[in-house]
Design a protein around this nucleic acid. Structure first.
Lengths: 170, 170
DNA sequence: ATGCATGCAAAGAGTTTGCACCTAA
DNA sequence: TTAGGTGCAAACTCTTTGCATGCAT
């Protein structure tokens, strides 16, 4: 059972959703996303910058979970732009505050960042090759609400990460 | 529906299990646990030390998730022992390798450690007061296996953390 | 013109490592 | 006796901050 969800560029396999980012197809939606973002920044009384734009663009057009160093490297290689590390840290933090970016802790290593504009999903991390797979499972989502309710806890967010061996590393 | 599981010092509420560590009751079981641990260390051709013993004891007799600094503080206050920070880092890492300790990443802060000798459980963290509640939910556990299976992933471990507001902070 | 944003470098926080000394076996 | 353990300090990695300058509005 496999369906392709064109709208969100997700492939749905047995209730699990893997994100497939098809860069070119996003082009148009990115432009409007960026425009919208810039407006939000203005409305907050803050200033736009090419750095913010590029960091957003880099996060938008990747299927990976990037560290701050990754972002700087991509900016340099793909866009021939040098960005100060402090700027990138400040910007991803700002994006987190705006709730358009989520951070992900991977054992021992630097924090990684990803855009938070698609469906909520969780992660499977291969402990051998460090590959990150994404999934979304309705039953787990529902059951979490149940658990929170039973503990008088107001659920705002959650992280779920499965560690193991991916197909190739077994 | 509420049962008390005396053996493991857990209270079971609506399928959710909260750990209640009753320190005194553990006394006897700790002694045998420690004995067993020391034997394991010997069998590995490694050496025991009072530092290892105390770190194990501190982790055993707490219901909190301790950072390395916490462990040093408790050692000093409760047991009048000074331990080098490097020793504590090395020891908790060693415990992790032995699979008797698990580490827990909390946003932005130092890693926290807990013993891994009881039932598997996950965490709910209050974003207001930082309190950590533990829970275990069979449906979620099962569904994770399902997800892993559907993605050709061999599940070894997982982390699940719910963020929200606890009863008191709402 | 104003005030937020940037980049650099220095400072901080958390963790690891080298080394001389100590101690369990 | 000797291999591993410990504590100190230095090193390292990741992240934050202060400040002069740059740039969007």
């Amino acid at each position: 059972m496999e369906t392709i969800c064109k709208r969100f560029h997700f492939r749905i396999i047995n209730n699990c959703i893997k994100r497939i980012i098809v860069v070119d197809k996003h082009k148009q939606s990115f432009d409007s996303f960026l425009k919208n973002f810039k407006k939000t920044v203005s409305n907050l009384g803050l200033k736009n910058s090419t750095q913010k734009d590029y960091i957003l663009k880099i996060l938008y057009f990747t299927d990976k979970h990037l560290s701050v160093e990754d972002i700087i490297k991509i900016a340099k290689q793909e866009y021939k732009i040098d960005m100060g590390i402090a700027t990138v840290y400040r910007t991803v933090k700002f994006f987190e505050d705006l709730n358009i970016v989520k951070s992900l802790d991977i054992a021992d290593k630097a924090k990684r960042y990803e855009l938070n504009i698609s469906l909520h999903h969780d992660h499977m991390i291969c402990t051998s090759c460090n590959k990150i797979l994404e999934f979304n499972d309705e039953i787990i989502e529902e059951q979490q609400k149940e658990v929170a309710k039973n503990n008088d806890f107001i659920l705002n967010d959650h992280i779920m990460t499965i560690y193991g061996l991916c197909e190739n590393c077994q």
